[in-house]
Nucleic acid binder design. Structure first.
Length: 249
DNA sequence: AATACATGCAACCGCACAGCG
DNA sequence: CCGCTGTGCGGTTGCATGTAT
């Protein structure tokens, strides 16, 4: 016995939405809100299935949607998030208020992928495509970089309470590359940040962590947000380093 | 001007998962 | 624990539009 279809498809309209349908859906949702998508088309007088209505609302009709092309800065952030999160488009979209997962996914598939390929980067792995021409040293650094980045980011993601850095972060933030990155951050981001001042410990308690976090540039941010900023900065720096290494090797 | 091909994006499909009885 | 339902997600498709020949 297969799964039942989400709705009775007989007599339901498919394909592009008309202006009249859009008006009906917007009018209904703004007046009644959304209790159950399955009932929305019936109550709104639409010959569509609930799923189709939901998609239309989320991807096109929501009033808080940001229109227009994605900026280069947004593209860069998508690349960085994709390297961390993979094809988890909804998760990536959550970093861009007013943008939808569908929009970001489409943008990735149609533009960013090509941009990365032109740059010689595999969009899937975010690693250089042509490894034959890389030097051993560069390959080693690249691998260390990605390993440490993945390990550390996984630890952050897996931490029970994302507001506290009481995970095994210190074990990962100890390589030379990371030291270098944090030094960079301390100059470009905030002079008060250093590995010493952060002093993440596997045994740190919530209170201890909070006092360390107080040195962070934006006290109102959660540690997760703060770490995101740090990683963003660190990753940019590392990518710049790799670029220079490639250039001069 | 006509045709073929490429591109971008809205929409659909099927699956996974959470919540509930 | 199990089955059903509703929702959300990621992959894919198909069409409209733009560009090249």
């Amino acid at each position: 016995m297969g799964r039942q279809p989400c709705c009775d498809r007989v007599g339901l309209k498919r394909g592009p939405w008309t202006i009249e349908e859009d008006h009906k859906l917007v009018h209904f949702i703004l007046n009644n809100g959304i209790q159950c998508w399955r009932t929305v088309p019936k109550l709104a007088g639409l010959q569509r299935c609930g799923k189709s209505c939901r998609l239309r609302w989320i991807n096109y009709l929501r009033p808080d949607l940001k229109r227009g092309a994605l900026s280069e800065a947004e593209e860069d952030q998508i690349i960085e998030l994709h390297a961390r999160l993979g094809n988890r488009w909804s998760k990536i979209a959550s970093y861009f208020p007013g943008r939808t997962d569908n929009e970001i996914k489409n943008h990735w598939n149609t533009r960013i992928k090509k941009r990365l390929q032109v740059m010689g980067i595999d969009p899937l792995t975010h690693q250089p495509i042509d490894k034959e021409h890389e030097t051993d040293e560069l390959l080693s650094i690249t691998e260390t970089y990605y390993d440490k980045r993945n390990e550390t980011e996984n630890n952050i993601e897996n931490a029970n309470d994302i507001s506290l850095p009481n995970n095994r972060l210190s074990e990962n933030i100890n390589g030379e590359l990371w030291n270098k990155s944090f030094k960079t951050i301390s100059t470009c981001y905030s002079p008060s940040i250093s590995l010493e001042s952060i002093n993440f410990s596997t045994t740190s308690t919530a209170t201890e962590s909070s006092s360390n976090v107080a040195a962070a540039p934006a006290e109102e941010d959660s540690v997760q947000q703060w770490m995101d900023s740090i990683f963003s900065c660190a990753i940019n720096q590392l990518e710049e380093d790799l670029f220079l290494l490639r250039k001069y090797n």
